[in-house]
Design a protein around this nucleic acid. Structure first.
Lengths: 362, 362
DNA sequence: TCCCTTATTGCTACCGGTGTCAACGCCTAA
DNA sequence: TTAGGCGTTGACACCGGTAGCAATAAGGGA
């Protein structure tokens, strides 16, 4: 409301008047008013135990009075570690990214840390160079690797070399526990299989994600486990590979619909592909949830907005983001994390909707 | 691959051997090797014109040889301005957020700037306090305000006060041109109306977003304009207000389907609501695209994955993110921005799919 | 030849914190 | 009385840059 945005010459007070341009208080101001050295103030803001109680209280009072907050940039410079958390991802699924961001922010909000996002493309040849630039330009306080990149060992090696703390979110334990959040995708897939078997389906197809993702294997494995516990097996001809994309789902769906022994149910590695399969089913004039049941994975917004709404496996992504942050930051956090955010693992849950129904008779 | 992640005491070399722990080169290293003062190096990296050509070349050579890159944290401290761009948003639409992020990153990638995200909730009472904390903790290089928050004048006032550059992305010009990207939502809505009128529809309903968003008004206004140009008018009883949510779309759809003069087409303020309206239509057993045509707005992923696929208005969000970044950073960018990213405005485009068809006869 | 201008460069003081280490006061044990 | 130990505190250098201004060299006109 005061002046222009342009970086031009600031309107300097012509007189050397006492009114200064509303500078933020610094550690020096606090030190002066509390009549201590700035080092002692530094101790207080860093919660050092070697400060006399009275002194601490006096300083705290001044801090509050001044509304002082330490400058993260200066702190970063002096301590060689910024107050930034990096989120590296390579994800076609926006909801997934947003949920992860949200989970991280749930935890770091109020602690003076900020979230810096760094999307990347693992197929780019200079992908690693990009990440390297990112992490050692900003000396990140830590990096969170959601499932889309957490399996990349080169990337992780890079972080280790750069001495940057990290947490990997993955379907299985890939690393030490303190560096990991495990999402147990397998369990969710098993539930899906049991659900379909319980509805009486015998001929059940699977459309998996790309082989390069661990999660594809986990989901298939869980699915097979679930079938097995119901006395069923996965027919190789009904085990198709997709690419986690809508288009690949359409293609897989068309192939399945053209099979001689057409399946009465299809379990897909994610919701995108499930939507594609649904489209293929529609093209043949069959009824989803009646003639053919479909189950997805992720519980993306799409799942609940489709018609019929998609039965799917909900993965608590936001919670995994929270956990990853707690793992990463631990004691640096101001407020004590909730116990539920300190588990280190997350469990999927089946959400039954209209796209899955009893197996058709005959 | 070298040592543990724990912040514990680093493995110091026991001997004061010549091998140092691979420190990043600093401006001092460059200065020493180029045999100049660090101020001159600083001039070179800041592209000051007051440097002799030979000197500059010598320094550039050393910089390249060392692989030197200035430390953004130190720079930030000294120049009181960080190398961080803030993205503040309050958006239920993940695709929108991701696209905006992507657009910003398209531009800042390689320039040493980073993107910090700050979601917020405008209904929280301490929303402004949160933002204030954010912007003056990190002295941001600039802030980008996508449509979900760009209309908040209090927020903008805050940024002005804090002398933080910003760019607002909005459906109309709300501010000076240099602080704005205009998305012209109105044009898109007009196209939608003309499309439906062209298909022979006479009774066309509208489900708008909340009144608190300028975009709701713009979209309705454009829609009315389009109808008018086709000799039609918007029946007040068929002009419903939603909340930009799926649920509100369902409710509006149900009400419309129960109207005496049931509309043969519905234009919705966004795709979420359009999906809701589709659901309501389905509940009544009517055919989407045949009995009732539906048009959305946004071209979210949902639109192309629904069945039938949704006719909608595509808003080039990513491009608007790019433009906003160019506006914001201008000369700070290393590479010259493409001309197309320097327009300051973006135009929506109708995408025709299966959810809109000829008006039913009779 | 001398002074002034212009082009280029370096000195020195910061920016706002943290790390190291010495110093100080007071209490206890010898 | 003195040495040692603990709890506290501050002086000072430093992190890696930028800012202001003086210093220096070269060129031009009187």
């Amino acid at each position: 409301m005061k002046k222009t945005m342009k970086p031009g010459p600031a309107t300097k007070p012509t007189t050397s008047a006492p009114l200064e341009p509303k500078r933020r208080p610094t550690i020096n101001d606090v030190a002066r008013l509390a009549n201590v050295s700035k080092k002692t103030v530094s101790r207080v803001i860093n919660q050092s135990p070697f400060v006399n109680k009275d002194t601490r209280e006096r300083i705290d009072a001044v801090i509050k009075e001044l509304g002082y907050a330490p400058d993260p940039v200066a702190r970063g410079l002096a301590s060689r570690r910024s107050y930034l958390i990096g989120l590296i991802y390579d994800n076609p699924n926006p909801q997934h990214v947003i949920d992860t961001q949200q989970g991280i922010l749930d935890i770091i909000r109020g602690s003076g840390l900020e979230l810096v996002v760094h999307p990347c493309n693992r197929r780019d040849k200079d992908f690693l160079a990009g990440v390297r630039g990112f992490i050692d330009r900003q000396k990140l306080a830590g990096v969170i690797l959601p499932s889309s990149v957490s399996e990349d060992e080169e990337l992780v090696a890079l972080l280790r070399e750069a001495d940057t703390p990290y947490v990997r979110i993955a379907s299985v334990l890939l690393d030490s526990e303190e560096n990991s959040i495990v999402t147990h995708d397998r369990e969710g897939a098993r539930q899906a299989a049991e659900h379909l078997a319980g509805l009486g389906h015998k001929v059940i197809a699977h459309v998996s994600g790309p082989d390069t993702f661990r999660s594809s294997h986990e989901r298939r494995a869980g699915f097979v486990e679930g079938l097995k516990s119901a006395g069923l097996a996965l027919d190789k001809k009904l085990d198709l590979r997709g690419g986690y994309t809508f288009q690949s789902g359409i293609e897989a769906g068309r192939r399945l619909m053209a099979t001689v022994s057409r399946p009465t149910a299809v379990f897909c590695g994610n919701d995108e592909m499930a939507a594609g399969v649904c489209q293929a089913i529609r093209e043949t004039g069959l009824d989803i949830g009646k003639d053919v049941s479909v189950v997805g994975f992720d519980d993306s917004p799409l799942a609940s907005r489709m018609w019929p709404a998609l039965t799917t496996v909900l993965l608590p992504i936001r919670a995994s983001g929270r956990m990853a942050s707690v793992r990463l930051l631990g004691d640096r956090l101001t407020k004590e994390p909730l116990e539920e955010d300190d588990q280190g693992e997350v469990h999927p849950r089946l959400v039954v909707r209209a796209s899955s129904g009893p197996a058709p008779k005959g």
